[in-house]
Design a binder for these strands. Sequence first.
DNA 1: ACGATGATGAAC
DNA 2: TTCATCATCGTA
Length: 173
Amino acid sequence: MNTILSKTFFNRPTLTVAQDLLGKYLVRQVKGQLVALEINEVEAYDGPSDRACHAARGKTPRTAVMFGPAGHFYVYFVYGVHWMLNIVTGREGYPAAILIRGAGNITGPARLTKFLGIDKTFNAAAAAKSSGLWIEDRGVIVPRHLTQRTPRIGVAYAGAVWAAKPYRFLYTK
DNA sequence: ACGATGATGAAC
DNA sequence: TTCATCATCGTA
């Protein structure tokens, strides 16, 4: 059975949700066609004290979505070129999100959004059929020994302590 | 190793 | 209003 994950799943501690996202499916529906990719790489950005999290410098028009309810997408533009897809986690008022970096055979967050046709129009959208983009539990059991935790990519600016946090989660078959 | 390419936020 | 920075990728 394929269960669409709802707010209940995302409204939990960010690191827990990040670990649990491995093996879940990112599903995109466009013109009646479904594309489903198994999530295998994510990064957690957890709260105002996380110096790598965009919300660490307060609530701004860009980061406002992260302060909202869990289960919505935070999509932003970086390096003048790429769109990044995140899903908001945790309780309302607590800014946190998870960057989806890889799914299926697509490696790299920018390649993933390009492949699925995701851009700013998905920012603040709910992860649900109504938006054409959601996440499903398809019953995959991920053996713990096939997962890894490493520091996050490209966050040296956050300082030694936060850059070293093992907030990147990988699932390799 | 580096340039592309533009939104963002902080400083002035 | 200007400027440095940036959760990356493709080409070299």
